[in-house]
Amino acid sequence: MTSKILLLSVSLLALSLPSCKKDSGKATLKMAGSTTLAPLATVWAEAYRKVNPELSISVSGGGSGGGITELTEGRIDICNSSRPMKDEEKKKIKDKFQKDAVETAVAYDALAVYVGKNNPLSEISIEQLKEIYMENSAIKTWDQVAPGGLTTEIKVLGRESNSGTGEYFMEATVGKGNKARAGIAEMNSSQAVIDTLKTTANAIAYDGIAFKTDDVKVLSLAKKKGEPAVAPSADDARSGKYPLARKLYFYTVGEPTGAAKAFIDWVTSAEGQAIVNSSKLAVSLK
């Protein structure tokens, strides 16, 4: 009996052993970082197999900060980031590798401000968003945002403050270092944001433009009160006219070489950028 058990465990072990053996014939490229960029990077990696079937690319999340840490510790080849690297992060890389961190913009990401479908409001300014989202906000109902608005209480939704999306939105509206309004419902998924807006007529929220559905309304954005508001379009996101748009970056230690260089060149080429638009996950560079 024991021999049978032994045989069983040995065969189980043997079955999982091949998974230890690294296939050395194949080059690998490891990417990690921003959760905003991860789905897009995956789509790129899937499509790149047709260009170079010999290269295996892995993509994992971890957030922009996590990705930068992994790059600094030399565990990955490319860091996906939804924000520019901070100076002290660049310095750490320089100190460790004696090489600069090299940034390549790969796409634009635009955040949209969403409200309920039947909300009469059609545009809002960054200033107004700040008044709504900042600490000790005086705005309690919609007609305080703009005259003629809903008289109902305003329900403020956000994303987790530490997610790339939440961090970027808060910095762009409330400003760096300022605290957020108490009682913001921090939706931990984009799906929850859209689902809640669908059912809650008096809510306001922000998220990637990709999440737009017919059940929610996207507001046009102005930088200041009284300035013309801009709807989130690809062109206005690129030109910077639309205020809530940012670049997404690949970071490498030193100028990219070999497989990494080929991949990054392909991503920024017309072919790679066409995939950005068809995936609807972000806005292409051109």
Binding site: T35, G61, G63, G65, I68, T69, E160, N162, E186, N188
Partner: peptide
């Protein structure tokens, strides 16, 4: 009322916190 729990806080924030940070 929506709430947040200890367990959910760890699960949702850990992926964005880098090792070595206070968070």
């Amino acid at each position: 009322d929506p709430i947040k729990t200890l367990t959910a806080t760890i699960a949702s924030e850990m992926n964005d916190a880098a090792r070595g940070e206070e968070h």
